[in-house]
Design a protein around this nucleic acid. Structure first.
Length: 482
DNA sequence: TATGCCGGGGT
DNA sequence: ACCCCGGCATA
């Protein structure tokens, strides 16, 4: 199949070598990230609320013991305003300034209060647990720990009793605070189902990993053998297909980025928008609310939003090392791919929209060509796969990369000739197709085994000296042409 | 498994 | 350019 090229390339070419290296990364990543988490968690160094929270809570439950307040978006708190006590929802907690932005439902006000002026209504933990799968919140987390933080609040309504109310409040807050920084509410959103939603649709199990140092490697690695390839970033490259969701869903990017020095952002692909956000959740929300309308329930919409954003990797430095993320995508080409492809994705790759290119290609293109493309698809998933979802798309491209990515590998003359035989009228088409299939047009290229006898058969191995030079050199026989 | 031959390497 | 060979696809 088309794999030939890729494989061959791999044999001696740098490309092949490159591809392989990435595989190793995964482990490193996971390990590394874990380390990062532990270290950074206490300070909440990352912007992404999600990341921070996960770290703090999930990875370092002990942190809770600290006196420091930790307020989570959506968390219910009580504050005093105009001499009266109001219930509100945390919008943002600025640890640095020790201030908390609170949204007072009853008054529709967004107030800023010093942390010490805020009374906790309940522990974030509680909120999270019931709503989500609580990846971060380790089930093992001793209630006592949670209690501690809760104890801070003076008039603490029973968490359960508030459950319903909280939901409403949170919903209201979410709606009213959409304009706020996306990251801040990361957690909230996640819990509210954004993430879980997508996660559920694709894979299960991953979520558990999600927040913390997730274990990217395991799931990724095995995914689809073809696409995946080198597990490495399995997340991206290979597995992208099946597991792709992970990489994206996980908010790991932050940790990894830091290490790799590759900044991952999410860009809104909506026409004339181009908004850049740091978190997936944020971009999703942006797309959903700004472009798709805010239909929280519309399942379809949720999925749609995936098609309107792309992951953008901003390199802050060049690093030869296999970074967790780009390892496979490693080199610029790969990195770039996602971005390039994405924009088109909506139209071309979106699974739902079948019409895109196919129509043109499939119709005019000769069967052989089409076929070839399909093969590529298998190798170069990057361009084709995306259908599943943007996430997948990206990941796929990486995954496929192993051998194929070189994408630009030259097209062999052979392949062309092959096509020629079948159709004379397609010169133009050919070019089109070629262009269309980013990866390579190898497939058909390999000469089909001819019917004619070859020197080998005619003379036998014993008389190799009588073979034509081509045969001797293991090239296409020149004496007995087909 | 044998064969055909491509992609490459060495000289 | 010549010679070889690893390796893959196919029969």
């Amino acid at each position: 199949m088309a794999s030939i090229l890729s494989k061959r390339l791999g044999k001696r070419s740098l490309l092949g070598a490159r591809v392989c290296t990435p595989i190793l990364c995964p482990d490193g990543m996971s390990v590394e990230s874990a380390g990062d988490l532990a270290v950074s968690a206490p300070l909440g160094a990352y912007d992404s609320g999600c990341y921070k929270e996960c770290l703090e809570e999930g990875a370092c439950p002990t942190n809770l013991s600290t006196n420091r307040f930790k307020l989570y978006p959506g968390q219910k708190v009580y504050i005093t305003h105009n001499g009266r006590e109001w219930a509100g929802l945390v919008e943002q907690h600025n640890h640095i300034d020790d201030e908390v932005k609170v949204f007072v439902l009853e008054q529709g006000l967004h107030l800023c209060r010093k942390t010490e002026d805020v009374r906790l209504a309940e522990t974030p933990k509680h909120m999270g647990v019931p709503m989500e799968q609580s990846l971060c919140a380790s089930p093992a987390m001793p209630a006592s720990v949670a209690q501690r933080s809760v104890s801070r609040s003076i008039d603490v309504p029973k968490r359960r009793s508030d459950a319903v109310e909280m939901d409403e409040m949170m919903a209201a807050m979410v709606l009213t605070s959409l304009s706020c920084t996306p990251q801040v509410t990361c957690d909230l959103w996640k819990e509210s189902g954004d993430v879980s939603d997508s996660g559920s649709s694709t894979t299960s199990g991953h979520w558990s990993v999600e927040c913390g140092a997730s274990t990217p490697s395991p799931p990724h690695t095995e995914a689809s053998p073809k696409y995946t390839n080198e597990g490495f970033n399995a997340s991206h490259v290979d597995e992208g297909f099946e597991t792709d969701p992970d990489p994206f869903l996980l908010d790991e990017p932050a940790p990894r980025k830091r290490k790799n020095s590759v900044k991952v952002m999410y860009e809104c692909l909506w026409p004339n928008c181009g908004k850049l956000l740091r978190s997936i959740v944020g971009i999703k929300r942006h797309v959903k609310t700004q472009h798709l309308g805010d239909g929280a329930d519309s399942d379809q919409r949720k999925r749609e939003e995936d098609f309107y954003y792309t992951e953008v990797q901003l390199k802050e430095e060049a690093e030869a090392e296999s970074t967790p993320r780009s390892p496979s995508t490693p080199t610029t080409p790969l990195l770039i791919q996602p971005m390039m492809a994405k924009p088109e994705t909506p139209a071309l790759e979106v699974p739902n929209m079948e019409p895109p290119l196919p129509s043109a290609l499939s119709q005019s293109a000769p069967g052989s060509f089409w076929h070839i493309q399909a093969d590529h698809a298998y190798q170069a998933l990057p361009s084709i796969q995306i259908p599943v979802s943007p996430h997948i798309f990206t990941s796929i491209s990486w995954a496929a990369a192993p051998s194929a990515l070189p994408a630009l590998s030259p097209i062999r003359s052979r392949s062309l000739s092959f096509s020629e035989q079948q159709q004379q009228q397609t010169p133009s088409i050919k070019s089109h197709l070629i262009v269309a299939s980013p990866p390579r047009a190898t497939n058909g290229s390999r000469k089909v085994r001819g019917e004619a006898k070859k020197c080998r058969k005619v003379y036998g191995i014993e008389h190799r000296d009588q073979w034509c030079t081509a045969c001797r050199w293991k090239k296409a026989c020149q004496r007995f042409l087909d």
